[in-house]
Amino acid sequence: MTVAVITRLADDVPRRTLILLGILLAALLVAPWIVNDYLLTVLIVTLYSAYTGQAWNIMMGFAGQLSLGNALYAGLGAYLAAALFTDFGIGPWIGFLASIPVAAACGAIIGFLAFRFGVAGVYFAILTIAFGEFARIGFDHLTIVNASAGLFLPVAQYAHNDLWRLRGDPTMFYYVILAATVLAFVLCRLLLRSRIGYFWLAIREDEQAARAVGIDTFRYKMYAVVISAAATSFAGVFYAFFYNNLFPEQVFNIGRSIEMILGPVIGGVGTLFGPILGAFVLNGLAETLNATMSAVGLDLPGAKEVFYGLCLLFVILALPEGVWPPLARRLGFDKGKR
């Protein structure tokens, strides 16, 4: 059964693509033994954005629905799991299970409001931001989770790693987010090559033509939103237990949503590898900037962000498809692709 799934996954993937993925995975697996603590944290943050980007890509890259508020689902997952942990001692994995229906229901409400009338796609985008902001302000006043004072998790002793309760050292967190990223990648590939994936792509390409071949576009758009929301909520659970503190102002900030989008857009919307590559490009860029700024002793608040914005501008002007599609063509990874 497992073997069958693996063969199906590798089905008509060019050999060199498989080799590249293998090398990449091997490098990521041994990374904690090679890199220092700081770089390990950078890798965790990078994989986190690869994971959230992959989840966002389901909505936008596959089904063509632009969500600008995915921080909402991460935030709900984070708060729910953290509250269950601090108040009732319930572990994060159960917390994640609990956050799935909550995030999915939230996504469903937004999708229902936006898709019901089949109005312009912009509505959906703006509604997603509006709900994110609604949650930010709402949680800022929600006293059962300490409102704007923030929710804190008891900080772990690094004596031993407790995977079940997600208490431990950065290496453990690294492997958890790596596993999640790999799983998300595999799940996305399976989805994309199944009936639902074909329907999503059809809707993304031309919704009216999709309806003409019998696709219930409302239903499949809802599936995309719900799956993406549920997947994103896990990122929130991870965030809560990794950082151990939650402030509505940070967790639900629209900046978090934008960060989730940048990776896949830079890497290549709708591609499986784009979100991962984009996350590495962006975080690599940010770290290089940090290092350069401190090397030249420049401490000007905002300067880094301006440069970051200019880099973004450059990428979208020069590479409209993102980095991965042209790169894949040049390296020949698209050969034999169906």
Binding site: L66, I261, V265, G302, L313
Partner: peptide, 30 residues
């Protein structure tokens, strides 16, 4: 040039502009 590009591409362009504007103001005015 972005008028005919997909929505997410336009969005990113304007977000990049927003980031540049906000942080230039931060540099100039604190």
């Amino acid at each position: 040039p972005f008028v005919t590009r997909p929505e997410h591409s336009q969005f990113l362009l304007l977000v990049a502009l927003a980031i540049i504007i906000a942080n230039t103001l931060l540099i100039l005015f604190g």
